[in-house]
Design a binder for these strands. Structure first.
Lengths: 362, 362
DNA sequence: TTAAGTTGTGGAAACGTTTCCAGTGGCGCT
DNA sequence: AGCGCCACTGGAAACGTTTCCACAACTTAA
């Protein structure tokens, strides 16, 4: 019967008939050792099934080899993919990932960071409701812990991996305008707790202004409306004049189509819909979804890479925004002239849309 | 300037003018202390911004307050949701979650478990390629670490949270048979590394046999085919006689429809499609997806709950399988009599399907 | 008044590592 | 032979906690 209690390097040393210092040196290849003792230590370790305690190591070296990760939710594939990207980069580096979710709650955000700090994670990669206003995150920064944000626009003093939501939203406005849409709407879930949604709305709004179009209608909905098409349909019905809706994510864009169907509106003839994120499934739909294509996984990778270089002592600079691309689909078309009172007089643009990848400005 | 180095309980004790033992007792409320010294310690801790080092604690208490979690991939929403469930349960318990992904690789699985063991996680919740054959997992079990599996059918000596894939697949076969389908196929990705897929196929196959139907055709595809509809279409074209396909997950079911469209086959008239998992989006599609509805999040919750009771010393028993339900949709219909050479002679069943929730047998 | 508690306190050990340092012995020089 | 150098070795300190134990100073009961 092997002892149930964990075997430590002391046991190995004893079994090999040497001091712990020597055993440590052998097992880490961190110093000289005679072939004889080296052999004995290695055998002892093997026979006892020894493995280092990361805790003992962390205590002594003041490095836990752990990265803390905080995202709003893993139920959102966008964040899940980003975390997957982080994980992929970290995998070979020897770092492990401690993860936490805030469920879009700022207070939980702060508490989670505090937890991660207590665990002495060597670095932090997070997406928060409001990074600017988290005492714990500020503390982390003061302590000099490498921090890499995801999904957030550049923020004073933080490194971040992001897509330029403002620019991407402008592109959507351009697409709408190019087709002659005038009455547009912006549909968002959790608008208040998501700077991403807010930036998208801002960009969309700004470009509409620039083009002399009416301000887009901001339609905020809750979880209930997002999941129950009939509720969403009721809300949609309050805006019969709209000819195009920009949904702040693809899931919402699909829900809008369902709701429109319930109202007897045809997509895209009666209502054009464009999403955001570019989830894989959108491409496989009967009516492929027009959307802004992004890569959350690449975002996670970039964030993790930055973190690693910081951990290796190199100082990282803020990288430019990750690229996005407008993906053409079957949910976007000319506005129906019979629809509403605005579309009628609109100029008809050429029907072929540019759909090439769109690189960000540096 | 506050010192950049971490402040420890020793600093607090010194600043409060007492011993570390006293400081510890005060800060943990774990022993007597005079109101005077209590006040001084608390103030010192506050002013210095002290927070406990989880590492020091873990070393001394031999409990890391950390749970290790290993899943194949977070890019798969099913696993991401399960992890979210685990996280949700753990959140209030004081335990943190160390996460790792294997990318469906058995060797990586084992290595990851080893890592988690080195980090001295207090418990493990995992979904692996082959839990039965992982030395590291065996070691973990020998050490008496609480282990809770997810998505795996009951395994000797492991507690697991799961849906009865075999039974669920039988239900799909029943639905097909009830409508008169005879030539059926089972479409799977990563068949070899997923006991879930294999069990689903087994159940599907078994029920077809029971009903005297021809054996279903097993169609295994790779990543490439799953993501490129034209490739999948080419494969599908090799099986023109099939009137119904059971896809081992919803994503695949949607891809099949896309591929069928490319071939000019109509769903469900020419080809019925049923998926598995019950992802939310399936419900919102123009043609709502018929599927087996499950709740990965509930699975994660159950697994985490079991873990917690084990950690609290209670011994947990294997719980029954989680419920699933067949969700009717628009992708399932009678076989087209003009299609193939088998459907023609099939008996016509009553067209109204039972779609009520189906509880598992204990 | 003394014995027996009770309460408050801090020193020190232990947890599992790594690393500094001092010590040993062998070797090749002069 | 004497010297320094080198390879090798192990004791001990340190990392941040908690907890055992001993002790002091009271309070209470006889």
């Amino acid at each position: 019967m092997s002892k149930t209690t964990n075997i430590t390097i002391k046991d190995v040393a004893q079994s090999a008939g040497c001091g712990v210092a020597t055993a440590s040196r052998v097992l880490n290849n961190s110093g000289p050792a005679s072939a004889d003792v080296r052999e004995r230590v290695e055998r002892a370790a093997r026979e006892l099934g020894f493995s280092f305690s990361a805790i003992g190591r962390a205590l002594q070296s003041r490095r836990s080899m752990t990265v803390g990760c905080l995202v709003p939710s893993l139920a959102n594939p966008v964040f899940a993919e980003a975390v997957q990207g982080v994980q992929a980069v970290l995998l070979g580096s020897g770092y492990q990932m401690l993860i936490s979710c805030s469920n879009y709650d700022a207070a939980a955000d702060d508490a989670a960071i505090e937890m991660l700090l207590a665990k002495k994670t060597d670095a932090l990669v997070t997406t928060m409701v409001d990074p600017d206003r988290s005492p714990a995150l500020r503390l982390a920064k003061k302590r000099g812990i490498p921090i890499s944000l995801m999904f957030h626009d550049p923020l004073d003093g933080f490194i971040t991996s992001y897509v330029d939501n403002f620019e991407a939203a402008k592109e959507v406005a351009r697409q709408f305008a190019g087709l002659g849409h005038r009455r547009t709407g912006f549909l968002a879930l959790r608008f208040s707790t998501s700077d991403r949604s807010r930036n998208r709305y801002a960009g969309f709004h700004s470009e509409c202004r620039t083009r002399g179009l009416p301000d887009p209608v901001l339609i905020e909905i809750g979880e209930a409306e997002a999941n129950q098409p009939d509720l969403l349909a009721a809300i949609l019905a309050q805006h019969p004049a709209l000819t195009a809706i920009f949904a702040s994510n693809d899931f919402l864009a699909i829900a809008v189509q369902k709701a429109a169907r319930l109202l007897g509106w045809r997509v895209p003839q009666d209502l054009s819909v464009v999403g955001f994120d570019g989830i894989e499934i959108g491409r496989l739909l009967e009516k492929p979804l027009a959307t802004i294509e992004t890569s959350p996984e690449a975002m996670g990778r970039q964030a993790a890479s930055s973190l690693l270089t910081m951990l290796q002592g190199g100082d990282t600079v803020q990288l430019p925004a990750l690229p996005f691309a407008f993906r053409a689909g079957a949910t976007l078309a000319l506005p129906n002239p019979e629809n509403g009172d605005d579309g009628r007089g609109a100029t008809r643009p050429s029907p072929d849309l540019p759909a090439e990848p769109h690189a960000q400005q540096g």
